[in-house]
Design a binder for these strands. Structure first.
Lengths: 229, 229, 229, 229
DNA sequence: CATGAATGAGACTTCATTCAT
DNA sequence: GATGAATGAAGTCTCATTCAT
């Protein structure tokens, strides 16, 4: 049932996705030598598959994308898919993980150190919108509700939750610096903000609204709801 | 190949769902009299199907529910399903419509006239949470993103959007009464609030949090973000 | 399984179709009186059904036409269909019978007494083509091969065979009058001619050929193959 | 949602049917070599499916044969069917193509070069009858009218038409050699002959007539209708 | 490790026929 | 006699996954 070396999804896969390293490539030290790491060939296949998966999950959604489609798009054999992912769901989760890491990385680069409340909020939102422009649809696809994918609990923290907790951490920091009202439940606020961003982003995209205006409007509402008065 | 008489989803179905009227039942004015409306028998079948659909869509989600399951749950033949709904998607949309109407009706009864900002927001949120308790899972299921259901645009206003616009109307009223800051984009704010509610509701349910606290927390954040300062 | 009074398909149905008599309509001689014949209402329903069946079988073919479609087209209830025809096949056979009778009647009126070989052949062919123009598609639909309709032998003489035998009779007469070579197997010749007509008619229709030329060409070939030399 | 690689019906399939070549089987030129053509395994599956399809279409007809039956008869999985044929109709057309090619090949081997009119006609008819004996029912099944299969025009030249055109070519040759009257429309004559053969063949089979007599009778009629007088 | 043909459970939907009204 | 809602067996086709090569 399992592929060899399932390579803990969260570690290898995503790291790779962002950094695209090719350093830890396998080397065989002569015939019968112990295998160390993963062969370059295998990594290459996985990279192609994940890129194809992202493209198709974004374009068509989870249920409209078949493993076969991903393999073909990746230019590898259909069977190869199952060499790299236990099943379709695992592939989708690898995609969302990749997207989450990528967005975090993107934000880390585009958003300066956590500064004053309003500036930070605006900068983060701008980062998210820029990422959305650079990678259209990825956020929306990656935020697909797990309940849609499978009845059984995945027992996996979905990106939405992860991001909500990221915001909670930020809010705690702002509380510490006295900018955010101490009576606020930062975890709840984190979830509300993430929910609002998702819905607001979809609304802006559907209605083709001016990005700057949306960022301003969202910033204003978030800041007012948080800041100490 | 269409089923006969797809019975416009928006008209009959939803109206019925809330009011459960039996007035427009067919009556024969003597032998050969003209038929008026739909026969009681047909209405009854549809009611059973819709109740079954709601139960299963809520329990299992869209993709895990087969038309056959709905028919069996409703206690009617497999084919009867297609007598009432053009296809599975149409049935799901009938369910979401019903839920939306039902919630609106519920709110209309449980929420007094639009009053002071904070009281109203709290009352509405309390209404939503009460509805959630009375009909567990229905809101979450009904808010299923359309993009998950079918690739092609449904061209149908989903409940999320409808509710967002309801909030926008409320906000406009509060603007008029001077309670809400005039510089707020009420449509954007409506969408953000709905997104926040969805995400927050899920969070509260998952973590089994105290409803009163969540309502208080959400009310506080929403009110602060909106009110004139 | 059976409808009341299946009314021998061949007798009533077709006769009616051509002559459209309304004479033998049922009359009830008081309460509990013996029913004589069939009620006018029933006849009327049957007439409408048969007209609808002809229209749809011609337009869509046997397998693409559902009893429901026929009923709706006829403007009667779906169940009424089974009051008049044991099943769908019986309805189709009633249609072919009707068409066969109708064509025979049409030919009898448009084709003079059997005269000289060539003139007769041409006249018959012209009659057939004229009928085709007046009732487009009917011949082709009515000639549908029985084997396509049902696996089990219908044990029913299909129109093709009936017409072939009609030609055989004609050929025998021409033999008697010395116009047709006595060494010809008239039954075989009858079948060949009918097959040729069917195929030739389809060819002419598909390619939109000039009717007169086709009639001339077919007449020439048939006459040459038959006539004493 | 298409099956992968529907493999152009006309090219591979039919060629294969007659010649049963195994030349263009995949070969690997060492590790990672380029694939050429289709794998032997796939070819083998297709061959089995086509043989099963022929058997069942002949025995039961188009509408009484399910893709599932064909797969089972072929000894392959249900899904394999759709790996080789886009749908049921495509499979049927592959069968008729195969039969047409096979008959042509059969005739080419059993019928000498085109010689004197009467001898040639008799030889061709004898070839057809012999083929019918060797492959009972195939001709009749393969000649199934396209209009019975699907309402929409297939835009595909059916065997009947192909054969009619084959006869037209022959007739043109006989015209050139002065054996056939120049005033004959060869294409019309081709269609008439094919129609006559189909109908006559069915008649002979149904009535269990002596093949030689039928061949003689048909030859006589065809020759008389064609030959210069 | 890679391939892609094969698999078969199961999805959605249709439609000839029955039957309560 | 007429109606049309109801029925459920059966049909076509899909797709996540396996496995021989």
């Amino acid at each position: 049932m399992m592929t060899e070396e399932p390579t803990s999804r969260t570690d290898k896969a995503t790291e790779m996705a962002v950094l695209d390293t090719e350093e830890d490539v396998a080397t065989r030290s002569g015939a019968g030598g112990a295998r160390v790491g993963v062969s370059r060939r295998k990594l290459e296949s996985r990279r192609k598959l994940l890129a194809a998966a992202r493209k198709l999950f974004v374009e068509r959604g989870y249920h409209e994308t078949r493993p076969q489609d991903i393999s073909r798009e990746a230019g590898v054999g259909h069977g190869t898919f199952y060499l790299h992912f236990e099943d379709k769901l695992a592939c989708f989760l690898a995609f969302t993980d990749e997207a989450a890491i990528e967005l975090e990385y993107f934000l880390a680069q585009h958003v300066g150190r956590v500064g004053r409340l309003e500036d930070s909020v605006r900068e983060i939102l701008r980062g998210i919108f820029e990422y959305s422009v650079a990678h259209p649809g990825v956020i929306s696809a990656a935020l697909t509700d797990a309940s849609v994918l499978s009845t059984s609990d995945i027992g996996k923290k979905m990106p939405m939750t992860r991001w909500a907790e990221g915001w909670a951490v930020l809010i705690e920091k702002w509380k510490a610096s006295g900018e955010v009202s101490p009576d606020i439940d930062s975890r709840l606020a984190g979830h509300l903000i993430v929910g609002a961003i998702k819905q607001g982003g979809g609304y802006a995209a559907r209605e083709n609204l001016d990005t700057e205006k949306i960022i301003d409007g969202m910033t204003m509402l978030f800041v007012r709801s948080l800041k100490k008065q």
